[in-house]
């Protein structure tokens, strides 16, 4: 594309973002061009801030401005229950329910044999270390309910076996509002295995 270099640079940067094609990048760049200089400055500032001020909590691995994070340093949270999730954004998802009072451990991925992602590439060693320090009654495995998530859960249960910590897996089953008739056999079978007394 021809035109002022700064404009095409900006489009190029937008286009690097996930899900943004040439057309959208163009639209966004023109939007910035027309926007108030104060808004643009604030936008630029928050881009830099997110890189400079947000890091990973050295205890649980979730995103934080302070280390340890607000959850890990909250005396009200139950340190005896650790909820294990795949990614930092999964912490936000569980926090949104507002019912979980324990703490977290972010793995930074899941075991993925076909992609060569093994335990060493994840924060599994750190989890074992937390458990070995003592005082952990329960580890809740909240990885995604797919084959890699299940494999990761089973591996965690295996290596934490014999450490006097209960390892549990979040229930897998039917989505609320869904129809039994349309459920696939894999999901339905998990729902039946994970049934609860009423």
């Amino acid at each position: 594309m021809t035109g002022p270099k700064p404009l095409s640079n900006l489009m190029e940067q937008f286009q690097k973002l996930p899900g943004i094609g040439r057309k959208t990048a163009e639209r966004l760049a023109f939007h910035i061009l027309k926007a108030d200089i104060k808004d643009v400055a604030r936008f630029a500032e928050s881009l830099r801030d997110v890189k400079e001020k947000v890091s990973l909590c050295s205890v649980c691995g979730s995103l934080t401005e302070l280390d340890p994070c607000a959850i890990c340093s909250d005396p009200e949270r139950n340190k005896g229950v650790i909820c294990v999730v795949e990614e930092p954004h999964d912490v936000f998802a569980v926090e949104r329910i507002g019912e979980f009072t324990g703490v977290y451990h972010v793995l930074m991925g899941v075991l993925s044999p076909l992609d060569g992602v093994g335990p060493e590439e994840l924060r599994i060693g750190e989890l074992v270390a937390r458990v070995e320090k003592g005082g952990v009654d329960e580890v809740i495995v909240a990885t995604n309910p797919n084959v890699e998530g299940e494999a990761t859960g089973m591996y965690i249960a295996k290596i934490l076996g014999g450490k006097n910590t209960l390892v549990t897996r979040i229930a897998r089953g039917l989505p609320m509002g869904g129809d039994l008739e349309y459920a696939d056999e894999v999901t339905l079978s998990k729902a039946i295995i994970g049934r609860l007394k009423m």
Partner: peptide, 13 residues
């Protein structure tokens, strides 16, 4: 969660 594929396209199915 409500996908009609979900568990149907997991490895080893």
């Amino acid at each position: 969660p409500k996908s009609r594929f979900a568990g149907r396209v997991e490895p080893f199915v």
